[in-house]
Amino acid sequence: MKHTLAVLVENRPGVLTHISGLISRRAFNIESIAAGYTEEADTTRITVVVEADEIELEQVVNQLSKLVDVIKITDLTAMDAIHRELALIKVKASVETRSDIVDIVDIFRAKIVDVNRETMVIELTGEETKIDALCEVLHEYGIIEIVRTGKIALSRGPIPAKEL
């Protein structure tokens, strides 16, 4: 099963390497990892998506928690939470196909952020599955490149992850 973990860490050089090193050394199955600043200048928040059974998940959480720079880990999987990923997709778009692609973009509530004679860049935010679906549909037009941020997640309600 896939688990989404919010990992709050000290905003210090080397922390990301430490975490990714530990993950690879212990051979955990990580699907994505996304990091960024938070409401506190000295805290970085990393969202980790891991494929694991209960026992493996316990290991991931306990091993990561042991790192001195890891402040708190919250499992958002079973919680009421918003899960999002952002993707930029560069697709081939000729005069003939352009309007079809625009239709698709509308249906997915995506955005066109760049257009030129041969290509378009589409931006889509949503759950992973939605992004997968759009990529699949666009496939036949010829996808040139895709970049995805990896999932980020935030619980609903007033309580922040650090207090959950």
């Binding site: 290991q59 306990n62 091993q63 928690s65 042991k66």
Partner: peptide, 11 residues
Amino acid sequence: IDAAEINKNVR
């Protein structure tokens, strides 16, 4: 003392 040792090798 180390929670990560629990269930690491033996259930």
